[in-house]
């Protein structure tokens, strides 16, 4: 079981910010597919330019495996200041 977090406009598009997913698919790619199958608007938002993922609070490079991961975050383009 793992927590999936959405930030910024991704959370607005999906209508949720945090969800438990059990069982977690084995790759980031499959997780995107799973979330996108239920919600085409979220699928499009997750595929948008500059959307990044973090696994257990570390930036994911490419299509990482989700084995043993407890928390997955999807982050749209960042803007502070």
């Amino acid at each position: 079981m793992a927590r999936v977090l959405l930030f910024g406009r991704l959370a607005d598009v999906a209508g949720w910010r945090e969800r438990e997913i059990d069982p977690l698919p084995d790759s980031l790619c499959s997780l995107r597919d799973l979330l996108g199958r239920e919600d085409p608007a979220l699928a499009e938002a997750l595929a948008g330019r500059g959307v990044r993922a973090a696994l257990d609070q570390a930036v994911a490079r490419g299509e990482a495996s989700l084995a043993g991961v407890r928390e997955v975050a999807f982050m749209p383009p960042m803007s502070g200041g």
């Binding site: 910024g8 607005d12 749209p76 383009p77 960042m78 803007s79 502070g80 200041g81």
Partner: peptide, 30 residues
Amino acid sequence: LMDYLKSRAPLWKREFGPDGGRWVEPTEAD
């Protein structure tokens, strides 16, 4: 450091105007 915070720091900013909220993304200038 300000240039970094504007476009690379993990923060998400929503501006509220007369027409409601709008998520801000880094501009071409940023």
